[in-house]
Design a protein around this nucleic acid. Structure first.
Lengths: 195, 195
DNA sequence: TCCCGTATATCCGGCGCAGAATATACTGGT
DNA sequence: ACCAGTATATTCTGCGCCGGATATACGGGA
């Protein structure tokens, strides 16, 4: 069986190991330091499973377990050639091919007609505010990173996220306005149904 | 234990049953007809598990199993009052609170520096094209739905998705341009590393 | 020196989900 | 009348993931 590209955590592992050999716990530390867990869900349980998977498929090799100091034993892994190839190919796929992702907000908004217009407006406005806060937080972070002399390429995903959040906020603002003054298509029926 | 709002399929079930009682297979049919599976992942295995869960939590009740014609037995479910309350509350939460979602593209683009600039540009352009196609497909669909006399509120989630796709395309175009003429911050190091 | 909280490092049990397989009944063509 | 293919309905089983449990070492205060 060929390796299944399900958990992106495996991608992170390959990327980290292509810098230098590490043991799982160290990977987790490094991911935390670099704020990678912003983008890829980190979870110790999953980490060890994923490492084992990669090992089974010989995308990484396990070095001897060492005991440094007197801490628990730890296994140091290194990436293989096949592993690097997998990393690059997976990356290309992730970027080139838009994957179908089921976003929770889409599910919610698709049923917004089930809520009375007044309630709907309230929750949409709440989200608008929340998204606004995320945007200012992101702006602060970007400021800081740029100030530290990090190149744009190092935080390009935040740039992307910022663009998406801006678009979402704009859409929410439009929808809120259209709900407030009843110009959203189908408003009459909506009002009538909830009376 | 209180009901866990994990699988959005449960949301769809509650919404469908708040129209009229149904058996699981019928729910699936209806979801298909209404193109709800565009927004909420439908899968027979999950459907039956989710229905059972809702039943355990008494958010829906099971009617007697009937045999229509001579087809397999089927159990018809109906929503309870607690179920309707759950539906509305869940909906409000989904809309009001932006959930942390780990998008695959963000994971990919965050590591784009691992690919040589030339490859990176190629895959970004591929995605740009793909997103463009999704946009035209969506535009056609919206045209059709509006032509059928359906109110905007009935396909509001597509409107949202369209806005997001436009923003993504714009960002991709920017990034592709910045990569082509080397104006993305950190381009020199990027070039140097891959030689 | 004793104790407690935190850091290091891994393992494990349970559960939800997905992709089947299963079983029967219609429908249309020859 | 027969067969293949599709529609109707549900069940089953494995596997990945997650949260919490486990075990040990280190550091600092009283």
């Amino acid at each position: 069986m060929t390796f299944k590209r399900t958990n992106p955590l495996a991608l992170a592992v390959l990327a980290l190991l292509s810098e230098r050999p590490m043991h799982p716990y160290e990977m987790a530390q490094t991911m935390r330091e670099r704020h990678q867990e912003e983008v890829i869900k980190l979870n110790y349980g999953s980490l060890y499973t994923v490492v084992e998977q990669l090992h089974r498929h010989e995308l990484i090799t396990a070095g001897a377990t060492q005991k440094a100091g007197n801490r628990p034993e730890r296994t140091v892994y290194a990436v293989t050639e096949a592993g690097t190839a997998e990393l690059h190919d997976w990356l290309r796929e992730l970027i080139a091919v838009p994957a179908k992702e089921y976003r929770r907000f889409e599910a919610g908004i698709s049923m917004v007609g089930l809520l009375p217009p007044h309630d709907a407006l309230a929750v949409v406005e709440q989200r608008e505010a929340a998204v606004g806060e995320q945007l200012t937080a992101l702006a602060v972070l970007l400021e800081k990173l740029a100030g530290m002399g990090l190149p744009q390429l190092a935080w390009i995903e935040l740039d992307y996220r910022m663009a998406m959040l801006r678009a979402e906020r704009a859409w929410l603002a439009w929808f809120a306005a259209a709900t407030r003054d009843g110009t959203v298509g189908g408003y009459e029926d909506w009002e009538d149904k909830h009376r």
